[in-house]
């Protein structure tokens, strides 16, 4: 039953949502969808709690078994507990909470994202070599778009930004539509497997 109940809940909910979408059930249908949306919001709140529990279990396991780089798990646990205590004591909009969020969490987030620029540059330098036709096309498009996206491109090659726009708008759109259609069909097939109970990996089995 522990494994079957989630499958039944998913199948029944999915059938209700699809029925309401494709069959005009009037006020009853609208009320049903609204109720399900509210449930969905509440479920998300619980998912956060579940996430915190899982994270604690994972890092506690790393520390207690002294797995490689377990010191980072200690830092993660301390940070998580400290943040939780500060928020509970000081409130979500409290001065200390806002200070911690703005001056520690946000700064770390910004710094990590900014570092990506350096890594991308280094990775491009080491790996972007004209080894074959495909690599040449990729490198050519990349250089052209880099120039097109920066004002210096138009200063060196007037009108290059328009060429960049065309590449993004025409060949790129064509490729993206294909990818989107493929992904959509894939998601549709995966959803049907979940509804029919054929795909059960999400239950942990």
């Amino acid at each position: 039953m522990k494994k079957q109940l989630p499958l039944i809940v998913v199948a029944v909910t999915a059938i209700i949502v699809m029925a309401v979408k494709f069959i005009d059930l009037g006020d009853f249908g609208a009320a049903t969808i609204k109720e399900l949306d509210t449930w969905s919001q509440v479920t998300y709140e619980f998912a956060f709690l579940l996430g915190a529990i899982n994270l604690t279990r994972l890092h506690y396991g790393n520390v207690s078994k002294k797995r490689p780089k377990w010191v980072y798990s200690v830092i993660a646990l301390i940070a998580m507990v400290a943040a939780a205590i500060i928020t509970l004591v000081n409130g979500v909009k409290g001065d200390v909470t806002v200070f911690v969020v703005e001056n520690i969490a946000n700064r770390i987030d910004s710094a990590v994202y900014a570092l990506l620029g350096f890594y991308v540059c280094s990775a491009a330098y080491r790996s972007f070599k004209l080894k074959n036709v495909e690599a040449t096309l990729l490198l050519g498009a990349a250089v052209l778009l880099m120039l097109a996206q920066a004002p210096i491109g138009d200063a060196i090659f007037p009108g290059i930004s328009k060429v960049g726009e065309w590449i993004l708008s025409v060949p790129n759109s064509a490729g993206m539509r294909g990818i989107r259609l493929g992904a959509g069909i894939g998601a549709y097939a995966a959803s049907i497997r979940v509804i029919l109970g054929l795909e059960r990996s999400w239950t942990g089995s």
Partner: peptide, 23 residues
């Protein structure tokens, strides 16, 4: 925008250097 311009040019210069070295 100026920082973006110089940043992109730097990457392109290093791409060219890397490829000159490769060939």
């Amino acid at each position: 925008m100026d920082a973006q311009s110089l940043g992109h040019v730097t990457i392109i210069v290093f791409l060219i250097l890397g490829n000159i070295g490769y060939f």
